[in-house]
């Protein structure tokens, strides 16, 4: 006889375990790791050497929302890897030279010589799913904070920028899959917003005008 045969009470136990596991699955943490490739931007490059520094909070950015009730799930949305992928691709397409800093810009730090260093950060991330809003779209909203500093760490500009992404409900699509797609749309929106407004940020515009080699060309995007 086959060793895989089970008795009726045993089958009942397995079935009960399976049903309970299915029910409990709805109460666990829903984890979304956002991964994507992003296209190179189509634009005239600014004649600048830009340094980039990602701190750990940005490069490993994740958002956790604890369930407020028994019927709801907690959410963990990890965007760090996709953030780094997006900004590397975008900035390389926006500036003639992009250099990754060895350390956070500051006095006495040994870093390559660049025109300025950009330090991006995610200030806030919010999400909405149809169960929250009764609207059949999944949404992700982010607010970035950018610091543009000299190699020595002196501030040049500081500004915030929102980004938004949504995706409709679709047949056989899980909540996690839809939130992942909405996050990718939000990241693309962040790239589009940054690329089209960077030279119009008042402090950045003033700084660009003060540079001898960019003063006449900054209207690129």
């Amino acid at each position: 006889m086959s060793g895989s045969m089970t008795t009726a009470p045993e089958r009942c136990r397995w079935l009960t375990t399976l049903v309970l596991a299915c029910l409990l699955a709805g109460c666990g943490t829903k984890e979304v790791i956002v991964q994507s490739e992003f296209p190179d931007p189509v634009m005239n490059r600014l004649p600048l050497t830009l340094g980039i520094w990602y701190d750990d909070a940005f490069a490993n950015h994740e958002f956790f929302d604890e369930a407020s009730g028994r019927a709801e799930s907690s959410w963990l949305v990890n965007t760090g890897q996709a953030q780094v992928e997006l900004w590397q691709t975008l900035l390389k397409g926006m500036f003639e030279n992009v250099v990754f800093m060895n350390s956070k810009p500051g006095p006495g730090q040994m870093n390559p010589v660049v025109d300025a260093v950009l330090l991006p950060a995610v200030d806030e991330l919010q999400y909405a799913i149809p169960a929250h809003t009764n609207v059949k779209v999944y949404e992700i909203w982010m607010r970035y904070r950018f610091h543009l500093v000299t190699t020595g760490g002196d501030p040049i500009a500081e500004w915030t920028m929102p980004a938004y992404g949504k995706t409709p409900t679709a047949f056989m699509q899980s909540d996690e899959g839809a939130v992942r797609l909405a996050a990718i749309v939000a990241l693309r929106d962040a790239g589009a917003h940054f690329a089209t407004t960077f030279t119009r940020v008042p402090q950045v515009e003033a700084w660009l005008n003060s540079l001898p080699h960019t003063g006449q060309q900054q209207a690129a995007p």
Partner: peptide, 26 residues
């Protein structure tokens, strides 16, 4: 192929907006 010019935030809303878009050589 045309990122970032046709994202929801940046997409042209009128045919006339295409003219402005085509000012960018790339």
């Amino acid at each position: 192929a045309l990122y970032p010019w046709f994202e929801p935030r940046t997409a042209p809303l009128r045919p006339a907006d295409l003219e402005k878009l085509l000012e960018h050589r790339d």
